[in-house]
Design a binder for these strands. Structure first.
Length: 460
RNA sequence: UCCCCUGUAGCUCAGUCGGUAGAGCGGGUGGCUGUUAACCACCAUGUCAGCAGUUCGAGUCUGUUCGGGGGAGCCA
């Protein structure tokens, strides 16, 4: 923690003329007869610090070892740069090589494909793109907490291991200490001998637990890892991902939509303000025009339409969809894309879905056919947020549980929330990696989390 | 899980009608220039993903296994 980071050095022009020391990794070196130009990066920001290594000051041996990827500590004088391309540069008086980098270093000073870099999970953060993703991801994490804390939400740590396999959001990973080397399938499984004395799994959602705290603290949110054992092989799914789930008491579906809209605008704005350089990079090299897109979202009013209206629009479009449109179907990607990218050209919130295609806990409308669900759809990605007002009537919830073929006794504590001082409440869920994807324009979700876990993929 | 595409040097790719391997970048060496993905010259580098088959002969054709990508479904 002794030396300034390159980010600090590049910002503080008043230190021109001072003797400073900097640590970092060599990105590139350009040799001339008298001088070598070394682009030094320390991860603190996108930009490199140009180090001037005069061959009269720095030995040939040291210069020879400053290969791409090598780490070093440079001492010298910060001076105004006489050439274009950078405002300041470091005139080196001494360079210490901390770690050599032999020529079989896989990251060359050229662009690599994301596919190749995925095989280099332990090194890819040293590239411009993945460094920027990591910094933006960090900023988004900050923004999420700031937003909820400023709005008086309490962060709740919901359990990662759960014994209720009834959360109903997808296939679960089982957690067990039973020795399956000696497992005899003909005898069945005696879970009473397992660690928890019953079948346990990794959580697929913190929502039900969050609801219990919302009905005590008012406004809460979770922000933690979630696990789904789905065999889905797409650029939008992970087996391990981070989810944000706010839950509010004394709130209906309209308040829920307001929160979702405010939330998205807040975090996007936070990143544009705090990661300007990284966002410029994405704007230029990853997704052209993304900064203007995000600004447009921040300054727009999200369109809010009912499911029934959306179906009418799709039917009236005259479009040949692969999946035919009729009231009662779940919207497919092509339908969502049409609505967000072609009709409204921006975020769209769709509400009041048919009860049969949504979860049991969503509040039933007076029509008896639809529930107070709301999905936020955005261009490029589709559904980014899914939420609802929760069913707060004990008798209706019980009936819905039975209708869906679920066991009421599995939900005894969840039903208790409606038995004892029930309140209207609502919330939503948001996959954090999808938010990072949407913000950076990165096309594949495996490139916005440090180490992606998906079917048949658990490297590093 | 389904459909489509794909696997050749460290990377990105070309390789025609089946005749025994090529470019750019990267690396090494030398030169040159306050350079900016520097430039110029020279040099080195391959289990053509694996296995099996057809053929006088397979990077090329066939089968199969594995890996990667895109789309779909499921979803966040």
């Amino acid at each position: 923690m002794s030396n300034d980071t390159i980010k600090q050095i590049l910002k503080k022009t008043e230190s021109i003329g001072n003797e400073i020391s900097v640590d970092g990794w060599v990105r590139t070196k350009r040799d001339t007869k008298e001088i070598a130009f070394v682009a030094l990066n320390d991860g603190s920001c996108m930009n490199n610090l140009q180090v001037i290594a005069d061959k009269s000051e720095i030995s040939e041996d040291i210069l020879h070892r400053l290969t791409t990827g090598a780490s070093c500590s440079v001492t010298g004088t910060l001076v105004e740069s006489p050439a274009k391309g950078q405002a300041v540069e470091l005139q080196a008086s001494a360079i210490e090589v901390l770690g050599d980098c032999p020529s079989d270093y896989p990251l060359q000073k050229k662009r690599h494909s994301f596919e190749f870099l995925r095989e280099m999970g332990h090194l890819r953060a040293r590239t411009n793109t993945f460094g920027a993703v990591a910094r933006v991801r960090n900023a988004l994490t900050m923004a999420v907490h700031n937003f909820f804390q400023e709005n008086e939400f309490f962060n709740v740590h919901t359990p990662l291991i759960t014994a209720s396999d009834t959360e109903g959001a997808g296939e679960m990973f089982q957690v067990t200490t039973l020795p399956f080397e000696t497992f005899d399938s003909s005898k069945g499984i005696d879970y009473s001998r397992d660690f928890f004395g019953k079948k346990a799994s990794l959580t697929v959602s913190g929502q039900l637990s969050a609801e219990t705290y919302a009905t005590a603290l008012g406004r809460v949110y979770t922000f933690g890892p979630t696990f789904r054992a789905e065999n889905s092989n797409t650029s939008r799914h992970l087996a391990e991902f981070w989810m944000i789930e706010p839950e509010m008491s004394f709130c209906d579906i309209n308040g829920d939509m307001d929160l979702a809209e405010d939330f998205l605008k807040y975090v996007l704005n936070f990143v544009l303000e705090n990661c300007a350089e990284d966002m410029e990079f994405f704007n230029k090299f990853v997704q052209k025009g993304i900064i203007d897109d995000l600004k447009a979202v921040i300054n727009s009013d999200f369109t809010r339409i009912s499911y029934t209206k959306a179906i009418e629009q799709l039917e009236a479009s005259g479009r040949e969809f692969e999946f035919p449109v009729s009231w009662g179907i779940d919207l497919a990607s092509e339908h969502e894309k049409y609505l967000t990218e072609e009709v409204y050209k921006g975020p769209v919130i769709i509400t009041d879905y048919p009860k049969d295609i949504k979860a049991f806990y969503m509040k039933l409308n007076e029509d008896g056919k639809t529930v107070r669900a709301m999905d936020v759809l955005v261009p490029r990605l589709g559904e980014i947020i899914g939420g609802s007002e929760r069913e707060n009537r004990h008798d209706v919830l019980l009936k819905r549980i039975e209708e869906m073929g679920l066991e009421a006794e599995d939900y005894w504590w969840y039903l208790d929330l409606r038995k004892f001082g029930t309140v209207p409440h609502a919330g939503f869920g948001l996959g954090f990696e999808r938010l990072v994807q949407y913000t950076t324009g990165m096309a594949n979700i495996r490139d916005v989390i440090p180490y992606a876990r998906s079917a048949k993929n658990c490297e590093f």
